Simulated scan of single mutants.
Amino acid sequence: MESLESELDRARNLDVSVLADAVESIGFECTRCGACCKSEADDPHTATVFPDEVRDLQDATDRDWRDVARPMPYGLREGPDGPEGETFEWALETDACGDCVFYEEADGDGTCTVHGDRPLLCETYPFSVALGGTSQPMGEAVDEAGMVRAHECEGLGRDISRADAEAMARTLKERAIRELTEAVGVRDNYDPADVDTGAGEVVVHDSEGPKRSDGTPR
């Protein structure tokens, strides 16, 4: 298995034109169906958001940390007073229906209310770069090298301009570098927490160290 540092070097050396070729070959145009922002099969929407992205969204919306992001649910258990335990990273907050809290729908069209400040994961959907240590949609490879993958999405296969394909490619590279930098930070700052079972405590480990569920350092 390649080290995170080796994968980070690979991410930094990605050829944007090659990534753009892959994106252009399959094509994409957002149809505003909202599928990527809504819960699926009763599972709440789960999109990774990093600490700096949470703060950017706080600045854009004047919301508290808890109103922007929640602890990633994986690894947590249900205690008498709600989720408890340790987890890694943050997910965008959801509403009572399990949809992204920033998603709105009118007349069948979905709208992201923070579109200009949306996290890199959202900005690059439905594509991802297949490097170890990155978040990869469970999709099919769209290039011969298997580097660019695409999640199932009704917007795939639609015409895309070269300029838009290159813009997507640049953001894909930025996301891969960002995710691997974050992964290195999580590893280096990981401090196992002594969580009091039954006390309803949640500890989130991100690149800045362990935090409480409200985003404050633990």
Rank of each mutant, 00 (worst) to 15 (best):
M1C: 11
E5Y: 13
S6P: 01
S6V: 12
D9A: 15
L14P: 04
V18T: 13
A22L: 05
A22C: 01
I26L: 13
G27Q: 07
E29G: 12
C30I: 12
C30L: 11
R32S: 13
R32P: 06
G34P: 13
C36L: 06
S39N: 11
A41P: 01
D43P: 01
A47G: 12
A47I: 15
V49N: 00
V49Q: 09
P51I: 06
P51A: 08
D52N: 10
E53K: 07
D56Q: 12
Q58H: 04
D59F: 07
T61I: 02
T61G: 04
T61S: 06
D62F: 00
R63Q: 07
W65S: 06
W65A: 09
M72Q: 10
L76W: 05
L76F: 05
R77M: 10
P80D: 15
F88E: 09
E89K: 14
E93P: 09
T94W: 03
G98K: 03
V101F: 01
F102G: 00
E104K: 12
E105I: 01
E105A: 12
A106N: 12
G108D: 02
D109A: 15
G110V: 04
T111L: 14
T111G: 00
T111Y: 14
H115W: 14
G116N: 12
P119M: 01
L120D: 08
T124P: 00
L131H: 01
S135M: 12
E140L: 13
A141E: 12
A141K: 10
M147K: 11
H151W: 11
C153A: 14
G155D: 03
R158Q: 13
D159E: 15
I160N: 09
A163D: 14
D164Q: 13
D164H: 15
A169H: 05
A176H: 10
R178S: 15
L180C: 11
R187A: 10
D188G: 06
N189M: 07
N189E: 08
P192F: 04
A193M: 03
A193I: 07
V195W: 09
V195Q: 00
D196W: 10
G198C: 07
E201A: 12
V202G: 02
H205M: 00
H205L: 01
S207P: 00
G209L: 08
P210Q: 05
G215F: 12
G215T: 05
R218A: 15
